[in-house]
Amino acid sequence: MLRFAAAGILCAALAAPAFAKDEAPAKQLFGAVKLPSSSPAQPFGFYAKGCMSGAVALPTDGPTWQAMRLSRNRRWGNPQMIALLQQFSQDAARLGWGSGILVGDISQPRGGPMLNGHASHQIGLDADIWFTPKPAQPLTPQQREDMPFTSMLDKSKFLTVDDRRWTGTHAKLVMQAASYPQVERVFVNPAIKKKLCETWRGDRSLLGKVRPVYGHDEHFHIRMACPPGATSCKKQAPTPTTDDCNSKELAWWFTKEPWAPPPKPDPNKKPVKPRQVTLADLPNACSVVLAAPSRSEDAATFGGAMAYSAQPAASAPAQAVGTVMESSLPLTNVPLPSPRP
Results as ranks from 00 to 15, higher is better:
Ser120Val: 00
Ser205Gly: 08
Cys233Phe: 07
Ala136Ser: 15
Cys245Lys: 06
Gly322Thr: 04
Val103Trp: 06
Phe46Ala: 15
Ile192Lys: 01
Val324Gln: 15
Ala314Tyr: 08
Ala92Asp: 08
Arg204Tyr: 06
Ala119Gly: 14
Lys49Val: 04
Ser38Trp: 09
Phe149Ile: 06
Gly98Tyr: 11
His221Tyr: 08
Ser287Phe: 08
Gly98Gln: 06
Val56Gln: 08
Gly208Val: 03
Lys21Met: 12
Lys34Gly: 08
Ser38Met: 04
Leu329His: 15
Arg72Gly: 10
Gln42Tyr: 13
Ser327Phe: 13
Pro258Ser: 07
Gly111Tyr: 02
Gly8Cys: 01
Met147Cys: 07
Pro63Leu: 09
Phe46Ile: 10
Thr231Gly: 02
Cys197Glu: 07
His219Glu: 12
Pro36Arg: 00
Thr332Leu: 13
Leu159Glu: 15
Ser39Pro: 01
Pro271Asp: 07
Val324Gly: 11
Gly112Lys: 01
Ser296Cys: 08
Lys34Asn: 02
His121Ile: 00
Val324Thr: 14
Ala225Lys: 14
Leu331Ile: 04
Leu336Tyr: 09
Pro190Asn: 01
Gly303Phe: 04
Ile129Thr: 00
Lys235Asn: 12
Cys245Phe: 07
Ala57His: 09
Leu2Phe: 13
Phe131Glu: 09
Lys195Pro: 03
Arg74Pro: 00
Pro43Cys: 04
Arg69Asn: 12
Ala127Asp: 09
Thr60Tyr: 12
Pro339Glu: 02
Gly8His: 11
Pro212Glu: 03
Arg165Tyr: 11
Gln142Gly: 11
Arg164Lys: 14
Glu218His: 12
Ser247Pro: 05
Ala292Asp: 03
Gly202Thr: 06
Val288Thr: 13
Ala318Met: 05
Thr323Ala: 15
Ala307Arg: 12
Met224Lys: 04
Cys233Trp: 05
Gln176Met: 14
Ile129Gly: 04
Asp105Val: 12
Ala318Lys: 00
Thr169Lys: 09
